[in-house]
């Protein structure tokens, strides 16, 4: 199962820092996402150093916010990437596979 089936999200950028929200569609899935989608896992999936990724949790909104420092190759002003803002990153992250399938 892909994360995309249980959650949605949005990417924002400030300078060279990207942030990606991951929001559960259903409250009953949130604990599972909280357990599986750690900052370390997100860092590994998006090829970022573990120390550069922080996670903030808003349980009342079933939401997590991942902050990725230095993830944008200099940010929108310097990056040579086609998507210099990193707008696509939330959809890239939603392709992550969940490790255990619930019954």
């Amino acid at each position: 199962m892909k994360l995309h089936e249980l959650a949605h999200g949005r990417t924002g950028d400030k300078g060279d820092t990207s942030n990606i929200s991951i929001i559960a569609y259903r409250a009953e899935d949130f604990d599972r996402l909280l357990a599986e989608i750690s900052a370390e896992r997100v860092a590994a999936y998006l090829n970022q150093p573990t120390s550069a990724v922080s996670r903030y949790v808003l349980p009342q909104l079933c939401a997590m916010n991942f902050v990725l420092k230095g993830a944008l190759k200099g940010g929108v002003t310097r990056s040579l990437a086609l998507d210099a803002h990193g707008k696509c990153l939330s959809s890239v992250l939603l392709e992550m596979s969940l490790t255990s399938d619930s019954a």
Binding site: H8, K14, N19, S21, Y56, L58, N65
Partner: peptide, 14 residues
């Protein structure tokens, strides 16, 4: 859902 996505848009520590 639209509000929650925008709440966290370009936010670091909420």
């Amino acid at each position: 859902a639209t509000c929650t996505e925008q709440l966290l848009y370009e936010i670091h520590d909420p």
